[in-house]
């Protein structure tokens, strides 16, 4: 059976989601973590659209990739690490 373009796209999106999620959790650098989390949100927005949930896709893109990323970034720059590396 010839795999369809949609199925291939799903596999690609889902595997990228897994990769970004794992990297965001395991990264030692908080800045890299936040950027990976933002990438995860963008991919998730695409996935919501693939699942025919455009309302959720809009929310995920605006809130997940936009606002929370910036709020996390500001929070990182405004706080200091006390524990030794």
């Amino acid at each position: 059976m010839e795999p369809s373009f949609g199925a291939l796209l799903n596999v690609l999106l889902l595997s990228l989601l897994l990769v970004t999620a794992l990297l965001a959790v395991s990264s030692r650098d908080l800045l890299a973590s936040v950027i990976l989390f933002s990438a995860y949100s963008l991919l998730m927005a695409l996935m919501w659209q693939r699942l025919q949930a455009p309302d959720l896709a809009l929310t995920e893109a605006a809130v997940g990739a936009g606002i929370t990323t910036v709020l996390f970034l500001v929070a990182i720059f405004r706080t200091r690490r006390r524990e030794e590396e």
Binding site: P54, D55, L58, T59, A62, V63, G66
Partner: peptide, 21 residues
Amino acid sequence: SPGGGFQGGAVIGASMIIFTT
């Protein structure tokens, strides 16, 4: 159409984030 108050509000918030940065 897809969207609504919360999504639109979040987009306005995002535009102000760009403007402020």
